[in-house]
Amino acid sequence: MKKYLEPDPVIEAYKRDIDLTLVRKSLSLTVQERVDRLLALQKAAKEFREAGRQLRASQKS
């Protein structure tokens, strides 16, 4: 990290929980593949939110 900022002890503590397998997998993708994956995740998250809304509505009725 010498190229960037001095290490911050709080951030260093958070780093212990970073899944480096995800980081390495992501770095193996092209930029377009990374964006495509994000858009697919956003679409899925939207579906999940809608499913949750419908579930809560059905539980109320």
């Binding site: 190229k3 911050d8 951030i11 980081v23």
Partner: peptide
């Protein structure tokens, strides 16, 4: 943002 910064710094280290 702490978690996101930690991931970005890990990315920088891996990329380096």
């Amino acid at each position: 943002d702490f978690d996101a910064i930690a991931e970005l710094e890990s990315l920088a280290e891996e990329a380096e």
